[in-house]
Design a binder for these strands. Structure first.
Length: 128
RNA sequence: GCAGCAAGUUGGUUUGUCGCUAUCAAGUAAUUGGUAGAGGAAAGUCCGGGCAACACAGAGCACCAUACUUCCUAACGGGAAGCUGUUCGCGAGGGUAGAGUAGUAUAACAGAAAAUAACCGCUCCGACUUGUCGGAGUAAGGGUGAAAAGGUGGGGUAAGAGCCCACCGGGAGCUUUGGCAACAAGGCUUGCCGUAUGCCUUAUGGGUUGUAAGAUCAUGUAUACCGACGUAUGUAGGACUGCUCGUCCGAUGUCGGGGGGUAGAUCGCUUGAGGCAAAUGGUGACAUUUGCACUAGAUAAAUGGCAAACGGUUCGCGUUUACGCGAAUUACAGAACCCGGCUUAUAAACUUGCUGCAUUC
Protein backbone atom coordinates (compact mmCIF):
# COMPACT_ATOMS: atom_id res chain seq x y z
CA UNK A 1 0.00 0.00 0.00
CA UNK A 2 3.02 2.25 -0.32
CA UNK A 3 2.92 5.14 -2.83
CA UNK A 4 -0.81 4.81 -3.10
CA UNK A 5 -3.27 7.67 -3.00
CA UNK A 6 -6.22 5.63 -4.22
CA UNK A 7 -9.39 5.36 -2.23
CA UNK A 8 -11.39 2.29 -3.27
CA UNK A 9 -14.60 1.09 -1.77
CA UNK A 10 -12.86 -1.39 0.53
CA UNK A 11 -11.49 1.50 2.56
CA UNK A 12 -14.92 2.99 3.16
CA UNK A 13 -17.10 1.96 6.02
CA UNK A 14 -20.57 0.81 5.03
CA UNK A 15 -23.46 -0.86 6.74
CA UNK A 16 -25.84 0.64 9.23
CA UNK A 17 -24.98 -1.79 12.02
CA UNK A 18 -21.21 -1.28 11.86
CA UNK A 19 -21.61 2.48 11.75
CA UNK A 20 -24.02 2.44 14.64
CA UNK A 21 -21.59 0.35 16.67
CA UNK A 22 -18.74 2.71 15.85
CA UNK A 23 -20.51 5.82 17.09
CA UNK A 24 -21.90 4.02 20.12
CA UNK A 25 -18.70 2.36 21.37
CA UNK A 26 -15.82 4.23 19.71
CA UNK A 27 -13.44 6.65 21.35
CA UNK A 28 -13.69 10.23 20.17
CA UNK A 29 -11.92 13.58 20.20
CA UNK A 30 -12.29 16.91 18.43
CA UNK A 31 -9.84 18.53 16.05
CA UNK A 32 -12.05 21.48 15.14
CA UNK A 33 -13.82 21.53 12.70
CA UNK A 34 -13.58 17.72 12.75
CA UNK A 35 -14.86 15.29 15.34
CA UNK A 36 -13.16 11.92 15.03
CA UNK A 37 -14.47 8.60 16.32
CA UNK A 38 -12.52 5.36 16.04
CA UNK A 39 -12.95 1.74 17.09
CA UNK A 40 -10.78 -1.33 16.71
CA UNK A 41 -12.30 -4.00 14.50
CA UNK A 42 -11.48 -7.63 13.85
CA UNK A 43 -8.42 -8.16 11.72
CA UNK A 44 -8.81 -7.80 7.97
CA UNK A 45 -6.10 -8.16 5.35
CA UNK A 46 -7.58 -6.07 2.55
CA UNK A 47 -7.99 -2.76 4.39
CA UNK A 48 -6.33 -1.74 7.63
CA UNK A 49 -8.73 1.17 8.11
CA UNK A 50 -12.21 2.00 6.93
CA UNK A 51 -13.64 5.49 7.19
CA UNK A 52 -17.05 7.14 7.09
CA UNK A 53 -17.51 10.86 6.60
CA UNK A 54 -20.57 12.68 7.84
CA UNK A 55 -21.68 16.28 7.46
CA UNK A 56 -24.92 16.77 9.35
CA UNK A 57 -27.86 18.43 7.66
CA UNK A 58 -28.41 20.38 10.84
CA UNK A 59 -25.23 22.37 10.27
CA UNK A 60 -25.18 22.53 6.46
CA UNK A 61 -28.62 23.08 5.09
CA UNK A 62 -27.84 22.79 1.38
CA UNK A 63 -26.90 19.53 -0.25
CA UNK A 64 -24.34 21.28 -2.41
CA UNK A 65 -22.43 22.50 0.63
CA UNK A 66 -22.58 19.12 2.31
CA UNK A 67 -21.21 17.43 -0.77
CA UNK A 68 -18.40 19.96 -1.06
CA UNK A 69 -17.28 19.45 2.55
CA UNK A 70 -17.50 15.67 2.31
CA UNK A 71 -15.32 15.80 -0.78
CA UNK A 72 -12.80 18.08 0.91
CA UNK A 73 -12.57 15.81 3.95
CA UNK A 74 -12.31 12.75 1.77
CA UNK A 75 -9.50 14.29 -0.25
CA UNK A 76 -7.68 15.32 2.91
CA UNK A 77 -7.81 11.74 4.16
CA UNK A 78 -6.90 10.26 0.82
CA UNK A 79 -3.79 12.40 0.41
CA UNK A 80 -2.45 11.90 3.93
CA UNK A 81 -3.45 8.41 4.96
CA UNK A 82 -0.26 6.69 3.84
CA UNK A 83 1.90 7.26 6.94
CA UNK A 84 -1.05 6.59 9.14
CA UNK A 85 -1.78 3.22 7.55
CA UNK A 86 1.85 2.22 7.88
CA UNK A 87 1.76 2.95 11.59
CA UNK A 88 -1.37 0.84 11.90
CA UNK A 89 0.35 -2.04 10.18
CA UNK A 90 3.27 -1.80 12.53
CA UNK A 91 0.98 -1.98 15.54
CA UNK A 92 -1.16 -4.65 13.86
CA UNK A 93 -4.47 -2.82 14.16
CA UNK A 94 -7.60 -2.66 12.03
CA UNK A 95 -9.72 0.42 12.66
CA UNK A 96 -13.11 1.80 11.79
CA UNK A 97 -13.05 5.58 11.73
CA UNK A 98 -15.87 8.11 11.67
CA UNK A 99 -15.34 11.78 10.87
CA UNK A 100 -18.04 14.30 11.71
CA UNK A 101 -17.99 17.91 10.58
CA UNK A 102 -18.92 20.11 13.49
CA UNK A 103 -18.41 23.67 12.20
CA UNK A 104 -21.37 25.76 11.14
CA UNK A 105 -19.65 27.43 8.19
CA UNK A 106 -17.67 26.21 5.20
CA UNK A 107 -13.99 25.81 6.12
CA UNK A 108 -11.40 26.00 3.32
CA UNK A 109 -9.45 22.93 2.24
CA UNK A 110 -6.22 24.15 3.81
CA UNK A 111 -7.77 24.15 7.30
CA UNK A 112 -9.40 20.76 6.87
CA UNK A 113 -6.17 19.29 5.52
CA UNK A 114 -4.12 20.55 8.48
CA UNK A 115 -6.61 19.21 11.00
CA UNK A 116 -6.86 15.86 9.26
CA UNK A 117 -3.11 15.34 9.55
CA UNK A 118 -3.31 16.30 13.20
CA UNK A 119 -6.18 13.91 13.80
CA UNK A 120 -4.51 10.95 12.10
CA UNK A 121 -1.34 11.44 14.11
CA UNK A 122 -3.36 11.63 17.29
CA UNK A 123 -5.15 8.36 16.60
CA UNK A 124 -1.85 6.64 15.88
CA UNK A 125 -0.32 8.00 19.10
CA UNK A 126 -3.26 6.98 21.24
CA UNK A 127 -3.09 3.36 20.17
CA UNK A 128 -1.17 1.20 22.70
C1' G B 1 -30.85 55.45 -29.42
C1' C B 2 -33.19 55.38 -24.32
C1' A B 3 -37.01 53.31 -21.15
C1' G B 4 -40.26 49.30 -20.96
C1' C B 5 -43.97 44.91 -22.02
C1' A B 6 -44.68 39.76 -23.63
C1' A B 7 -42.81 34.98 -25.21
C1' G B 8 -38.59 31.93 -25.48
C1' U B 9 -33.28 30.28 -25.17
C1' U B 10 -28.39 29.83 -22.95
C1' G B 11 -26.36 29.78 -18.25
C1' G B 12 -18.69 29.31 -18.66
C1' U B 13 -13.84 27.28 -21.41
C1' U B 14 -8.90 25.14 -21.06
C1' U B 15 -4.45 23.00 -18.75
C1' G B 16 -1.62 20.39 -14.86
C1' U B 17 -1.77 16.91 -10.88
C1' C B 18 -4.03 13.33 -7.55
C1' G B 19 -8.62 10.58 -7.33
C1' C B 20 -14.18 8.34 -7.59
C1' U B 21 -18.59 5.35 -10.08
C1' A B 22 -20.16 2.39 -14.25
C1' U B 23 -18.64 -0.29 -18.41
C1' C B 24 -15.37 -2.51 -22.29
C1' A B 25 -10.55 -4.68 -23.54
C1' A B 26 -5.78 -6.96 -22.10
C1' G B 27 -3.45 -9.81 -18.17
C1' U B 28 -2.85 -16.07 -14.02
C1' A B 29 -2.94 -11.90 -10.86
C1' A B 30 -1.45 -7.22 -8.77
C1' U B 31 -2.77 -3.87 -12.38
C1' U B 32 -2.91 -1.09 -17.06
C1' G B 33 -5.55 1.33 -21.02
C1' G B 34 -10.14 3.18 -23.58
C1' U B 35 -15.18 5.26 -23.16
C1' A B 36 -19.22 7.62 -20.41
C1' G B 37 -20.63 10.26 -15.90
C1' A B 38 -26.04 16.05 -12.57
C1' G B 39 -30.20 20.34 -13.60
C1' G B 40 -33.35 24.17 -15.66
C1' A B 41 -34.88 24.08 -11.84
C1' A B 42 -31.99 17.68 -10.21
C1' A B 43 -35.08 21.88 -5.15
C1' G B 44 -40.14 22.43 -2.50
C1' U B 45 -42.83 17.53 -2.30
C1' C B 46 -48.06 21.16 -3.85
C1' C B 47 -51.27 18.45 -7.77
C1' G B 48 -51.93 14.50 -11.74
C1' G B 49 -50.51 9.68 -13.79
C1' G B 50 -47.49 5.01 -14.73
C1' C B 51 -45.65 0.92 -11.80
C1' A B 52 -46.01 -2.18 -7.18
C1' A B 53 -48.14 -4.34 -2.67
C1' C B 54 -52.33 -4.66 0.29
C1' A B 55 -57.68 -3.84 0.61
C1' C B 56 -62.42 -4.15 -2.03
C1' A B 57 -70.54 -7.29 -2.96
C1' G B 58 -73.93 -3.00 -4.09
C1' A B 59 -76.17 1.71 -2.55
C1' G B 60 -76.63 6.05 0.54
C1' C B 61 -74.70 9.62 4.16
C1' A B 62 -70.50 12.13 6.00
C1' C B 63 -65.56 14.17 4.87
C1' C B 64 -61.97 16.41 1.39
C1' A B 65 -60.91 18.78 -3.30
C1' U B 66 -62.56 21.38 -7.61
C1' A B 67 -66.26 25.08 -9.79
C1' C B 68 -67.37 31.31 -16.16
C1' U B 69 -67.19 28.91 -21.50
C1' U B 70 -65.09 25.88 -25.31
C1' C B 71 -60.99 23.02 -26.27
C1' C B 72 -56.00 20.18 -25.24
C1' U B 73 -54.23 15.95 -22.57
C1' A B 74 -52.94 9.28 -20.29
C1' A B 75 -54.55 12.50 -16.38
C1' C B 76 -54.71 16.99 -13.51
C1' G B 77 -56.45 21.36 -8.87
C1' G B 78 -52.23 21.95 -15.23
C1' G B 79 -52.30 24.36 -20.17
C1' A B 80 -54.53 27.10 -24.70
C1' A B 81 -58.07 30.37 -26.81
C1' G B 82 -62.05 33.25 -25.32
C1' C B 83 -66.18 35.72 -22.00
C1' U B 84 -67.70 38.97 -17.72
C1' G B 85 -66.66 42.14 -13.41
C1' U B 86 -62.85 44.83 -10.96
C1' U B 87 -58.11 47.07 -10.60
C1' C B 88 -52.82 49.07 -11.94
C1' G B 89 -50.24 51.34 -16.19
C1' C B 90 -49.86 57.18 -21.10
C1' G B 91 -49.26 52.43 -23.70
C1' A B 92 -47.57 47.38 -25.23
C1' G B 93 -49.75 44.77 -21.29
C1' G B 94 -50.25 43.00 -16.01
C1' G B 95 -52.88 41.54 -11.33
C1' U B 96 -57.35 39.61 -9.28
C1' A B 97 -62.41 37.32 -8.95
C1' G B 98 -66.12 34.22 -11.55
C1' A B 99 -71.53 27.11 -10.33
C1' G B 100 -76.58 28.37 -7.79
C1' U B 101 -79.33 31.89 -4.41
C1' A B 102 -84.78 28.72 -2.42
C1' G B 103 -83.73 29.31 2.77
C1' U B 104 -80.84 31.36 6.78
C1' A B 105 -77.17 34.13 9.63
C1' U B 106 -73.70 38.11 10.26
C1' A B 107 -72.01 43.13 9.10
C1' A B 108 -66.70 45.54 13.82
C1' C B 109 -65.73 51.02 14.89
C1' A B 110 -68.40 55.33 13.89
C1' G B 111 -73.39 56.68 13.31
C1' A B 112 -80.10 58.46 15.10
C1' A B 113 -80.47 54.17 12.12
C1' A B 114 -76.80 48.44 9.00
C1' A B 115 -82.87 47.02 6.83
C1' U B 116 -90.23 46.57 8.14
C1' A B 117 -84.14 53.45 9.51
C1' A B 118 -86.52 59.73 12.48
C1' C B 119 -80.57 62.40 15.92
C1' C B 120 -80.66 67.32 13.78
C1' G B 121 -83.80 69.39 10.17
C1' C B 122 -88.69 70.14 7.43
C1' U B 123 -94.36 70.14 7.81
C1' C B 124 -99.08 69.82 10.29
C1' C B 125 -102.01 69.36 14.79
C1' G B 126 -102.64 70.19 20.16
C1' A B 127 -101.24 72.55 24.80
C1' C B 128 -99.97 76.73 27.17
C1' U B 129 -95.90 79.83 30.71
C1' U B 130 -95.42 82.82 22.96
C1' G B 131 -90.90 79.60 22.39
C1' U B 132 -90.95 75.55 24.42
C1' C B 133 -93.27 70.72 25.29
C1' G B 134 -96.25 66.58 23.38
C1' G B 135 -98.37 63.83 19.14
C1' A B 136 -98.43 62.64 13.94
C1' G B 137 -96.25 62.83 9.06
C1' U B 138 -91.69 63.06 6.20
C1' A B 139 -85.83 59.83 3.52
C1' A B 140 -85.27 66.41 -0.06
C1' G B 141 -80.82 68.43 3.19
C1' G B 142 -76.79 67.53 7.39
C1' G B 143 -73.08 64.54 9.67
C1' U B 144 -70.92 58.84 10.34
C1' G B 145 -69.24 54.83 7.53
C1' A B 146 -66.34 49.97 3.34
C1' A B 147 -71.61 50.33 2.37
C1' A B 148 -77.27 54.87 3.84
C1' A B 149 -82.54 52.51 0.67
C1' G B 150 -81.01 53.80 -7.83
C1' G B 151 -79.32 59.12 -10.42
C1' U B 152 -80.87 64.05 -12.77
C1' G B 153 -84.93 67.20 -13.80
C1' G B 154 -90.10 68.18 -13.54
C1' G B 155 -95.02 67.43 -11.60
C1' G B 156 -97.14 66.73 -6.98
C1' U B 157 -97.62 67.78 -1.63
C1' A B 158 -98.90 70.56 4.72
C1' A B 159 -93.81 68.95 4.08
C1' G B 160 -92.01 64.95 1.33
C1' A B 161 -91.23 60.33 -1.17
C1' G B 162 -91.02 55.88 -7.98
C1' C B 163 -96.24 58.84 -5.14
C1' C B 164 -96.58 60.13 -10.75
C1' C B 165 -93.87 61.49 -15.45
C1' A B 166 -89.38 62.17 -18.89
C1' C B 167 -84.39 60.69 -19.66
C1' C B 168 -80.33 57.65 -17.74
C1' G B 169 -78.46 53.07 -14.84
C1' G B 170 -79.68 48.10 -13.02
C1' G B 171 -82.96 43.68 -12.39
C1' A B 172 -86.87 40.20 -13.94
C1' G B 173 -89.98 38.01 -17.94
C1' C B 174 -90.73 37.24 -23.27
C1' U B 175 -88.06 37.66 -27.75
C1' U B 176 -84.71 38.77 -32.48
C1' U B 177 -79.77 38.56 -34.55
C1' G B 178 -74.46 36.90 -34.11
C1' G B 179 -71.46 33.08 -31.61
C1' C B 180 -70.25 25.60 -30.65
C1' A B 181 -70.60 28.21 -25.86
C1' A B 182 -69.61 31.73 -21.77
C1' C B 183 -71.68 36.08 -23.80
C1' A B 184 -72.58 40.43 -26.95
C1' A B 185 -75.88 43.90 -29.63
C1' G B 186 -81.01 45.14 -29.89
C1' G B 187 -86.79 45.00 -29.35
C1' C B 188 -91.20 44.63 -26.15
C1' U B 189 -93.38 44.32 -21.14
C1' U B 190 -92.89 45.40 -15.94
C1' G B 191 -91.61 50.92 -10.86
C1' C B 192 -89.45 45.32 -9.67
C1' C B 193 -84.69 48.64 -7.39
C1' G B 194 -78.82 48.46 -1.44
C1' U B 195 -74.17 45.63 -0.81
C1' A B 196 -70.68 41.95 0.94
C1' U B 197 -69.51 37.38 3.24
C1' G B 198 -70.56 32.66 5.45
C1' C B 199 -73.70 28.50 6.24
C1' C B 200 -76.36 26.05 2.69
C1' U B 201 -77.73 23.77 -2.30
C1' U B 202 -76.03 21.54 -6.96
C1' A B 203 -72.48 19.01 -10.18
C1' U B 204 -67.88 16.26 -10.85
C1' G B 205 -63.82 13.49 -8.74
C1' G B 206 -61.54 10.87 -4.55
C1' G B 207 -59.56 3.02 -1.26
C1' U B 208 -54.58 2.99 1.48
C1' U B 209 -49.37 2.99 1.26
C1' G B 210 -44.97 4.44 -1.61
C1' U B 211 -39.20 1.84 -5.27
C1' A B 212 -36.57 1.93 2.08
C1' A B 213 -42.85 -0.37 -2.93
C1' G B 214 -42.02 -5.16 -4.32
C1' A B 215 -39.46 -9.84 -6.47
C1' U B 216 -35.41 -13.50 -6.42
C1' C B 217 -30.92 -15.88 -4.31
C1' A B 218 -28.91 -16.84 0.35
C1' U B 219 -23.36 -17.73 4.21
C1' G B 220 -23.27 -18.25 9.62
C1' U B 221 -26.35 -19.06 14.04
C1' A B 222 -30.83 -20.90 16.12
C1' U B 223 -34.89 -23.85 14.32
C1' A B 224 -40.90 -25.57 12.58
C1' C B 225 -41.49 -30.11 9.89
C1' C B 226 -39.80 -35.07 7.65
C1' G B 227 -36.55 -39.55 7.50
C1' A B 228 -32.68 -42.91 9.57
C1' C B 229 -30.08 -44.55 13.94
C1' G B 230 -29.88 -44.45 19.31
C1' U B 231 -31.67 -43.83 24.60
C1' A B 232 -35.77 -48.46 24.37
C1' U B 233 -38.82 -55.10 24.79
C1' G B 234 -41.01 -47.16 23.38
C1' U B 235 -37.55 -44.36 28.88
C1' A B 236 -38.71 -39.29 31.19
C1' G B 237 -43.18 -36.99 30.43
C1' G B 238 -48.22 -36.17 28.59
C1' A B 239 -53.78 -37.21 27.01
C1' C B 240 -58.50 -40.03 28.62
C1' U B 241 -59.64 -40.49 34.73
C1' G B 242 -61.54 -39.08 41.45
C1' C B 243 -58.00 -43.49 41.73
C1' U B 244 -56.04 -48.11 39.54
C1' C B 245 -55.62 -50.83 35.09
C1' G B 246 -55.79 -50.16 30.05
C1' U B 247 -55.32 -47.61 25.32
C1' C B 248 -52.98 -43.68 22.68
C1' C B 249 -49.18 -39.78 21.95
C1' G B 250 -44.11 -39.29 22.80
C1' A B 251 -39.22 -36.09 23.73
C1' U B 252 -34.09 -34.56 25.10
C1' G B 253 -28.95 -36.92 21.27
C1' U B 254 -26.31 -37.74 16.30
C1' C B 255 -26.59 -37.57 10.92
C1' G B 256 -29.22 -36.21 6.51
C1' G B 257 -33.23 -33.58 4.08
C1' G B 258 -35.96 -29.11 4.49
C1' G B 259 -39.45 -24.47 4.98
C1' G B 260 -39.32 -19.58 6.62
C1' G B 261 -35.54 -16.01 6.91
C1' U B 262 -31.04 -11.99 9.37
C1' A B 263 -26.16 -9.92 7.35
C1' G B 264 -25.26 -9.50 2.28
C1' A B 265 -26.09 -9.85 -3.08
C1' U B 266 -29.06 -9.48 -7.64
C1' C B 267 -33.40 -7.60 -10.04
C1' G B 268 -36.71 -3.38 -9.74
C1' C B 269 -33.17 0.62 -12.47
C1' U B 270 -33.61 3.36 -16.69
C1' U B 271 -36.13 3.19 -24.15
C1' G B 272 -39.80 6.71 -22.30
C1' A B 273 -47.99 8.79 -22.65
C1' G B 274 -39.66 10.35 -24.03
C1' G B 275 -36.09 13.82 -27.07
C1' C B 276 -34.51 16.50 -31.64
C1' A B 277 -35.57 18.09 -36.81
C1' A B 278 -38.88 18.75 -40.88
C1' A B 279 -43.69 18.66 -43.17
C1' U B 280 -49.02 18.93 -42.64
C1' G B 281 -53.63 20.43 -39.79
C1' G B 282 -55.10 24.04 -35.96
C1' U B 283 -55.68 31.33 -33.83
C1' G B 284 -53.37 28.22 -29.96
C1' A B 285 -52.41 24.37 -26.17
C1' C B 286 -51.64 20.26 -29.24
C1' A B 287 -52.14 16.27 -32.88
C1' U B 288 -50.52 13.24 -37.16
C1' U B 289 -46.66 11.51 -40.46
C1' U B 290 -41.53 10.85 -41.79
C1' G B 291 -36.47 10.83 -40.46
C1' C B 292 -32.43 10.87 -36.81
C1' A B 293 -29.85 9.85 -32.28
C1' C B 294 -30.34 7.35 -27.62
C1' U B 295 -23.91 6.41 -22.95
C1' A B 296 -25.70 9.10 -15.08
C1' G B 297 -27.69 4.95 -12.41
C1' A B 298 -24.75 5.82 -7.12
C1' U B 299 -26.53 3.10 -2.13
C1' A B 300 -23.36 6.31 4.73
C1' A B 301 -24.57 7.22 -1.54
C1' A B 302 -19.78 8.27 -7.59
C1' U B 303 -19.94 12.49 -11.23
C1' G B 304 -14.57 15.44 -7.55
C1' G B 305 -10.20 18.11 -4.46
C1' C B 306 -6.14 21.45 -5.22
C1' A B 307 -3.40 24.93 -8.41
C1' A B 308 -3.28 28.11 -12.68
C1' A B 309 -4.73 30.51 -17.22
C1' C B 310 -8.49 32.41 -20.52
C1' G B 311 -13.27 34.44 -21.23
C1' G B 312 -17.99 37.31 -19.78
C1' U B 313 -19.99 41.64 -16.94
C1' U B 314 -19.43 46.25 -14.05
C1' C B 315 -16.44 50.31 -12.27
C1' G B 316 -12.00 53.51 -12.32
C1' C B 317 -7.66 55.49 -14.94
C1' G B 318 -4.96 56.26 -19.58
C1' U B 319 -7.30 57.18 -24.17
C1' U B 320 -9.80 59.19 -31.12
C1' U B 321 -13.06 54.33 -32.23
C1' A B 322 -10.36 50.31 -30.68
C1' C B 323 -7.16 48.87 -27.08
C1' G B 324 -4.13 48.71 -22.46
C1' C B 325 -3.72 48.57 -16.98
C1' G B 326 -6.02 47.83 -12.15
C1' A B 327 -10.08 46.34 -8.96
C1' A B 328 -14.61 43.83 -8.09
C1' U B 329 -17.79 40.02 -9.71
C1' U B 330 -18.70 35.18 -12.32
C1' A B 331 -25.57 32.99 -9.97
C1' C B 332 -29.26 29.54 -8.00
C1' A B 333 -28.08 25.00 -6.94
C1' G B 334 -26.45 18.11 -6.54
C1' A B 335 -29.86 12.89 -9.59
C1' A B 336 -31.83 8.64 -5.55
C1' C B 337 -38.20 4.53 -9.46
C1' C B 338 -39.95 7.14 -13.91
C1' C B 339 -43.03 10.74 -16.49
C1' G B 340 -46.70 15.53 -17.11
C1' G B 341 -47.43 20.11 -14.50
C1' C B 342 -47.29 23.92 -10.62
C1' U B 343 -44.42 26.84 -7.14
C1' U B 344 -39.96 28.89 -5.43
C1' A B 345 -34.31 30.32 -6.24
C1' U B 346 -31.09 32.35 -10.07
C1' A B 347 -24.78 36.47 -11.57
C1' A B 348 -24.94 37.38 -16.49
C1' A B 349 -25.94 36.98 -21.77
C1' C B 350 -28.92 36.31 -26.21
C1' U B 351 -33.30 35.94 -29.81
C1' U B 352 -38.20 37.39 -31.63
C1' G B 353 -42.56 40.49 -31.54
C1' C B 354 -44.67 44.87 -29.57
C1' U B 355 -45.31 49.90 -26.76
C1' G B 356 -43.89 55.00 -25.23
C1' C B 357 -40.41 59.00 -25.87
C1' A B 358 -36.54 61.30 -28.72
C1' U B 359 -33.82 61.88 -33.39
C1' U B 360 -32.91 61.54 -38.83
C1' C B 361 -34.73 61.05 -43.95
Amino acid sequence: MADNYSFPKKQRLTGEIRIGKLFLQGKSFIAYPLRVVYLADEKREDAPARIVINVPKRRMKKAVDRNLLKRRIREAYRLHKEDFLEKLSEKNYTLNIGVNYVANDKQPFSVIEKKMIEALNRIADQLP
